[in-house]
Simulated scan of single mutants.
Amino acid sequence: MKNNSKVWYVTGASQGLGLTLVKKLLESGYRVAATSRNAQNLKQAVGVIDTERFLPLVVDLNNPDCVNESIQQTIAAFGNIDVVVNNAGYGMMGAVEEIAEQDIRKIFDVNVLSAVNVVKGVLPFMRKQQSGYIVNVGSVAGFVGAPGWSVYSATKAAIAAFSEVLALDVKEFGIKVTVAEPSGFRTGFLTENSLANINTGIEGYEAVKAARERYLAGNGKQPGDPDKASAILIELAESKEPPLHLYLGQDAYKRASEKIATMAAELEAWKNTSISADFQ
Rank of each mutant, 00 (worst) to 15 (best):
residue 59 V to H: 05
residue 59 V to G: 00
residue 59 V to D: 04
residue 60 D to A: 07
residue 60 D to F: 05
residue 61 L to T: 08
residue 61 L to P: 00
residue 61 L to N: 06
residue 62 N to H: 10
residue 63 N to R: 03
residue 63 N to T: 06
residue 67 V to L: 13
residue 69 E to I: 14
residue 69 E to H: 13
residue 69 E to A: 15
residue 69 E to Q: 15
residue 70 S to P: 03
residue 70 S to T: 14
residue 70 S to D: 05
residue 71 I to V: 15
residue 71 I to C: 09
residue 72 Q to A: 15
residue 72 Q to Y: 05
residue 74 T to M: 12
residue 74 T to W: 13
residue 74 T to D: 03
residue 76 A to M: 13
residue 76 A to T: 11
residue 77 A to W: 12
residue 77 A to V: 10
residue 78 F to W: 13
residue 80 N to K: 15
residue 82 D to T: 04
residue 82 D to K: 14
residue 83 V to G: 11
residue 83 V to W: 04
residue 84 V to F: 07
residue 85 V to P: 03
residue 85 V to H: 00
residue 85 V to R: 01
residue 86 N to S: 09
residue 88 A to P: 11
residue 89 G to I: 02
residue 89 G to L: 09
residue 89 G to R: 07
residue 91 G to M: 04
residue 92 M to C: 08
residue 93 M to G: 15
residue 94 G to Q: 08
residue 95 A to F: 15
residue 99 I to K: 12
residue 99 I to R: 10
residue 99 I to Q: 07
residue 100 A to V: 06
residue 100 A to W: 01
residue 101 E to P: 04
residue 102 Q to L: 07
residue 102 Q to P: 05
residue 103 D to I: 06
residue 103 D to G: 05
residue 103 D to K: 13
residue 104 I to S: 04
residue 106 K to W: 10
residue 106 K to D: 13
residue 108 F to T: 03
residue 109 D to L: 13
residue 112 V to C: 01
residue 113 L to G: 00
residue 114 S to A: 15
residue 114 S to L: 06
residue 115 A to D: 07
residue 116 V to P: 01
residue 117 N to Y: 07
residue 118 V to H: 02
residue 119 V to I: 13
residue 119 V to C: 00
residue 120 K to A: 03
residue 120 K to P: 02
residue 122 V to L: 11
residue 122 V to Q: 00
residue 123 L to F: 02
residue 124 P to S: 10
residue 126 M to I: 02
residue 127 R to W: 10
residue 128 K to I: 02
residue 128 K to V: 05
residue 128 K to Q: 13
residue 130 Q to T: 12
residue 130 Q to W: 08
residue 131 S to W: 01
residue 131 S to R: 15
residue 131 S to C: 15
residue 131 S to M: 10
residue 132 G to Y: 02
residue 132 G to H: 00
residue 132 G to C: 06
residue 132 G to D: 00
residue 135 V to A: 01
residue 140 V to A: 12
residue 140 V to L: 09
residue 141 A to W: 05
residue 141 A to P: 01
residue 142 G to R: 06
residue 142 G to I: 03
residue 142 G to M: 07
residue 143 F to N: 10
residue 144 V to F: 04
residue 145 G to S: 15
residue 145 G to N: 13
residue 145 G to W: 04
residue 147 P to V: 02
residue 149 W to T: 04
residue 152 Y to S: 04
residue 153 S to R: 09
residue 154 A to R: 06
residue 158 A to G: 09
residue 159 I to K: 02
residue 160 A to Y: 12
residue 160 A to S: 11
residue 160 A to D: 04
residue 164 E to S: 08
residue 166 L to G: 04
residue 167 A to W: 05
residue 168 L to T: 08
residue 168 L to S: 14
residue 168 L to N: 14
residue 169 D to S: 07
residue 170 V to Y: 11
residue 171 K to G: 04
residue 171 K to A: 12
residue 171 K to L: 08
residue 173 F to D: 08
residue 174 G to P: 03
residue 174 G to L: 12
residue 175 I to H: 01
residue 177 V to E: 00
residue 178 T to M: 03
residue 178 T to W: 00
residue 179 V to E: 00
residue 180 A to I: 05
residue 180 A to F: 08
residue 181 E to L: 15
residue 181 E to S: 15
residue 181 E to I: 11
residue 184 G to Q: 10
residue 184 G to I: 06
residue 185 F to T: 08
residue 187 T to W: 00
residue 187 T to I: 11
residue 188 G to N: 04
